[in-house]
Structure formats: structure tokens, C-alpha cells
Computed example of a mutant assay.
Amino acid sequence: MAIIANAEVRTLAEPWSGEVRSGTHQFITDKPESFGGQDQGPAPYDLICSGLISCTMITLRMYASHKGLELGEFSVEADFYVNKEGKEWIERRLSFAQPLSEELKQKVLEISSKTPVTKTLLRSVEIKTVLVE
């Protein structure tokens, strides 16, 4: 068993705001004003999307480096959706500054579907919660 990530959040005075610490990094999490927050930082579902797109970018760059490919500058975006029936899904978009061959487009889509965070989200994850006293 290995820990591959760690984060801690501590409440702040403002409703819904918290200070997140992960390794040497710190940032604020909050809810949008429309949900009663101060919109000082990303909301929890924004962080899920951020994790997915960050992993996608890193995985594609690692793949390209390993294969000696030049992907050029690109961006990855994601939207988290939920419908009235409670179905949830994420739509991820890749945009490349330079044109890609059809073969490379297909490989990029294949690699994107196999990133570690993609796999985790697709299979779900068990969450165990304990009280620490």
C-alpha cells in the first residue's frame, strides 16, 4: 500500500471557505456566491475537474516525450454535469495549437482515456472515513 496523494483542509471564518494544504502548496477552496460562498477559490467539483485535466496534460506530455513526439502547445478543459435524474458525467476537451495527424488524434484520445485519474474516476473509489480524537 502506498499513499499517492495527501491533502488537508482547515475551515476559515467565511462560510464554506477553507485553506487546503497539499505538500508545500496552499490554496483556498470555497463555493460560488450563488451558493452562499465568497468565490475565493475553486469549489470541490472544480477540483475534481482540475485533477482530471492536470493528469491528462501530464500524461500526454509524458507519452509524447517517451515516444519522441511533438504535440506543441495544447489545453485541456473539463465540465462536470448532473441532470435531473442525478446522472453525472464529465466532458473533457483537448485543443492543440498545431494540427495533429488523424493517427495522432486517435492516439491522443486513447491515451487520454487511460490516464490514472481517468481510470480512478471511471471505476470509482472506496472512501473510508474515521474520526480522529
Rank of each mutant, 00 (worst) to 15 (best):
G37L: 02
E110T: 13
N6F: 14
R61C: 02
F27N: 02
I111K: 05
K107Y: 12
C55W: 03
G51E: 00
L109I: 03
S113Q: 04
S113Y: 01
T24E: 07
V20Y: 06
Q106K: 07
W89G: 05
Y81C: 11
Y63I: 14
P15M: 01
F80H: 11
K107V: 13
L109D: 02
E8W: 05
E85H: 08
T11V: 15
E103P: 01
S17A: 11
V82A: 15
T59L: 08
A43M: 11
G18A: 02
Q40N: 15
R123C: 12
I58V: 12
S101F: 03
K67I: 10
E103G: 07
M1I: 12
E133C: 08
E103T: 09
W89F: 03
E8I: 01
I90V: 08
E85L: 06
V130R: 09
E70D: 10
L47S: 01
K128L: 10
V9R: 05
I58P: 09
S112V: 08
V20E: 06
E77S: 07
Y45W: 13
E85F: 05
T11H: 15
Y45M: 14
I111D: 09
N6H: 15
T59I: 09
T24K: 03
E88N: 15
R61N: 04
V108M: 03
P116D: 07
E91N: 02
S112H: 08
L121I: 02
S50G: 08
A2C: 12
E85C: 07
A78F: 00
L60W: 10
I90N: 07
Y81N: 12
A2S: 14
K84A: 14
S17Q: 11
G18M: 00
I4E: 15
L131D: 06
F74C: 03
G36K: 02
H66I: 14
A5C: 11
S112E: 10
G51L: 02
A7V: 01
E103A: 11
G86V: 10
E73H: 15
D79M: 12
H25P: 00
F27G: 03
R61K: 10
T29M: 10
A64K: 07
G37F: 01
S34I: 04
K128Q: 11
E14I: 05
E73Q: 14
A5D: 13
V130F: 05
E70P: 08
L121N: 02
D46A: 01
D39K: 12
L109M: 01
T118E: 08
I90L: 07
V125H: 12
G23T: 00
L94M: 05
S124V: 13
D39C: 07
